[in-house]
Design a protein around this nucleic acid. Sequence first.
DNA 1: ACCTGAACACCGTTCAAGT
DNA 2: ACCTGAACACCGTTCAAGT
Lengths: 220, 220
Amino acid sequence: MARPRKPLLSRDRIVEAASALVDAEGLDAVSTRRLAAELGVSGPSLYNHFRNKDEILDAVADAVSVQVDLSMFDESDPRDWREALHDWALSYRAALAAHPHIVPVLARGPGRRPAGLRVADAVFGAMVGAGWPPAQATRIGALMRYFITGSALGSFAGGFVDDESAYDPADYPHLGQAHLLAERRWEVDEGAFEVGLRALLDGLERQYEEYGASSSPSAG
Amino acid sequence: MARPRKPLLSRDRIVEAASALVDAEGLDAVSTRRLAAELGVSGPSLYNHFRNKDEILDAVADAVSVQVDLSMFDESDPRDWREALHDWALSYRAALAAHPHIVPVLARGPGRRPAGLRVADAVFGAMVGAGWPPAQATRIGALMRYFITGSALGSFAGGFVDDESAYDPADYPHLGQAHLLAERRWEVDEGAFEVGLRALLDGLERQYEEYGASSSPSAG
DNA sequence: ACCTGAACACCGTTCAAGT
DNA sequence: ACCTGAACACCGTTCAAGT
């Protein structure tokens, strides 16, 4: 075949196929040969569009970050930083939960990924705009990412085996019901995320009030 | 050589070598051949001691969980659940931070790993003992794991590139200082963890007080 | 510019053969 | 029981050759 008149591949087509493969079978299923086969080309063709496999996975991760809604940060009153943070967290988590296998790549940080940087920019900007000191705004961005990526990285409930005999009462006196976790997986994980998010925001609000005694939101 | 009089390998020796390799060069550096070479044997020898590579990595992960201090859960007054949770979180994070490359394996949940199950058992038991309803105790175990593994999975600050030109002000108006994050990495991540942990515990305490109005700690 | 097949240096795992 | 080398079906990536 050699070079066709019209390119068979494009970065977008490769990312699309890689995303589908990651979602369907996990990170380990993505090999350059397998991915190329899925696209109807030979393995080395991919190297005309990406420098290496890691760059492909970075692009897959960034395609997830694009899905994160950021509108709450420019539409709302700066004083509603708590509500904006809450809504953003839900959107972020929903985006990650739809593509759990790519979370480890995403959790490495934005690096040079444009959508990842846009997320960081929006959160930091909104927190500073709401009156948080910059150093504290940075920490908020970090701790929210810790919590959200941690919750998306793996199901808590699904991390326990389904098998009652795995929990010997002599070894684990309090895990007598742990074998039931797996089947209530969604409920447990969702509940934990909600409780944790509320606790985080309550706790941050308390800290904000302490700052509020001595400073006020910037004019913007 | 065939079979030696005294076994050349043991599960412990394999786990030790694998841990060292993971810590020094990351998960990708661990291949069965490389690991075997490090131990002075041929690749297939490992299969006399572990069913497959994943089981080796599981054992490496569990060796990290063993390092997590749980003494605060049986020594303290059940009413001091906040302080116990705080101290446990610090110990857990310290153990993970010392072996960041294995965190993705650990974050899949305890599965059948004994040390992972002991951690879950201790936290759940202590929260129930302190008067939390079991469903809420489960959520606390989950949300703490989200936050702690999320914080250990990758540095927040280190996820930003060092290069000022990566942050075009037209694209990212608030990231003008982001290139400085990498060099203040430890400080930023540690600060975010502390602020987040405090916020979480403050928020949980608030929820606890709401429950406390209508119930009291179990006799145990 | 963009695709190909061949090639290189790797993988995880199985298995018969050795003691 | 515990190690070996050979073998199988894979990897990521480079590169010269084709149009």
